Amino acid sequence: PKDQAKKEIEKALRNGDEEKAKRLAKKYGISDDDWKELKKRVS
């Protein structure tokens, strides 16, 4: 599910692991808009 994916990506971003977050986003098909939203929430 997308919500689970977003949680994992957000966690990776919080850990400062943007490479992992990007890989997860690609793997789960997270859209650019969702990606920006996640980045905003974390920063």
Rank of each mutant, 00 (worst) to 15 (best):
P1D: 14
P1M: 12
P1C: 15
K2M: 15
K2V: 13
K2R: 11
K2I: 14
D3R: 08
Q4D: 12
Q4W: 15
A5D: 06
A5G: 09
K6F: 15
K6Q: 09
K6W: 15
K6G: 05
K7W: 14
K7F: 11
K7I: 13
K7C: 13
E8W: 11
E8Y: 07
E8R: 08
E8Q: 09
I9F: 01
I9G: 00
I9K: 00
I9R: 00
I9S: 00
I9H: 00
I9P: 00
E10C: 07
E10V: 13
E10N: 03
K11W: 10
K11L: 14
K11I: 12
K11D: 14
K11G: 08
A12G: 01
A12K: 02
L13G: 00
L13A: 01
L13V: 02
L13M: 04
R14E: 04
R14F: 05
R14C: 11
N15Q: 13
N15E: 15
G16R: 05
G16T: 02
G16K: 05
G16V: 02
D17H: 09
D17Q: 09
D17V: 02
E18G: 04
E18N: 07
E18Y: 12
E18C: 11
E18M: 11
E18D: 06
E18T: 08
E18Q: 06
E19S: 08
E19V: 11
E19G: 08
K20F: 14
A21H: 00
A21Q: 00
A21W: 01
A21S: 04
K22M: 14
K22G: 04
R23E: 11
R23M: 14
R23L: 14
R23P: 00
L24W: 03
L24A: 02
L24E: 01
L24Q: 01
A25M: 05
A25H: 02
A25P: 00
A25L: 03
K26L: 13
K26W: 08
K26Q: 11
K27A: 09
K27N: 05
Y28N: 04
Y28Q: 02
Y28R: 02
G29E: 07
I30V: 06
I30Q: 01
S31C: 04
S31E: 04
S31G: 06
D32V: 07
D32N: 07
D33W: 05
D34M: 06
D34E: 15
D34R: 02
W35Q: 02
K36Y: 13
E37K: 08
E37M: 07
E37I: 06
E37R: 07
E37V: 04
E37H: 04
L38Y: 03
L38D: 01
L38M: 10
L38K: 01
K39C: 06
K39H: 06
K39L: 15
K39Q: 10
K40F: 11
R41F: 08
R41W: 07
V42Y: 09
V42S: 05
V42H: 05
V42Q: 04
S43H: 13
S43C: 12
S43I: 11
S43E: 15
